[in-house]
Design a protein around this nucleic acid. Structure first.
Lengths: 136, 136
DNA sequence: CGGTATCCGCTTGGATACTG
DNA sequence: CAGTATCCAAGCGGATACCG
């Protein structure tokens, strides 16, 4: 008795691996920025064009965080006009491995998720429609 | 010429696998809620106690989204007092596999990240200290 | 080109109180 | 116990303008 409690994942703030993970790539754009660099060096403006919906502010912030955590490095060429290339460090590249598993899961299972979501919404609609049914 | 462009990851909104992924588990608490159910059924209040920092509002919202996407199911016992158990569906469980790879990565590499971060911050401090150096 | 700085709206999300 | 509802503050994040 009370024995089964021992198997419960520890989720408390400092210990849990997922807390660490989220601290590193939990921000909205981090994964997409990393992904953008999978194929090689990327310039600032290139990120901006390829990551649809991101703003300069968010991009700068995201790149700064990733650099701070040692996942990417900046390569500044002092040419005119100035050019800066971002690239994944070995540490950053190592993250691509589990990340690709996640991506595969998403692609493989998204149809099922969509199906569940549509069914759920349909049921919700029925309920919403039903509660004023006498109204016609 | 222009050939290397072909290898670049497509990040645009509808297509990219990471967009799908983030749509499903991109919210702040989703991963932790899923993780909480790894060991079996979890009650509402149990989530609240085990996921440090989450509020009722966010918990309810997170659980609702995960249920909508078919990752978890609710089991309502109409006893007094009422009891509701949440558990991962097979779809939800399938997500645990890549998720565990991510967790392992985080645990294995967090020390390196910390090291990079500390070094980065130290450099930033030096710069901040240096720029007013003539002031004493 | 590759950012930084400022302004500011508006969503996110916490606290509290209430219900079945 | 398991939520829902309301209120409200903070900060996320977009738009714009400017700089090296």
């Amino acid at each position: 008795m009370g024995k089964r409690k021992a198997a419960e994942p520890d989720i408390s703030i400092a210990k849990c691996g997922y807390r660490l993970l989220l601290e590193i790539i939990g921000s909205k754009w981090a994964v997409l920025a990393i992904y953008a660099m999978e194929g090689g060096d990327v310039r600032y403006g290139e990120f901006l064009r390829r990551i649809e919906g991101i703003s300069k502010k968010m991009l700068t912030q995201t790149l700064w965080q990733l650099e701070r955590d040692g996942l990417l490095e900046r390569d500044i060429h002092d040419t005119v006009p100035p050019g800066v290339e971002y690239r994944l460090t070995p540490l950053g590249r190592s993250l691509l491995v589990p990340l690709r598993h996640m991506k595969s899961w998403a692609i493989d299972h998204y149809p099922l998720v969509r199906k569940a979501r549509d069914a759920f919404d349909q049921r919700a609609d029925l309920v919403a429609g039903g509660e004023t049914e006498g109204q016609s």
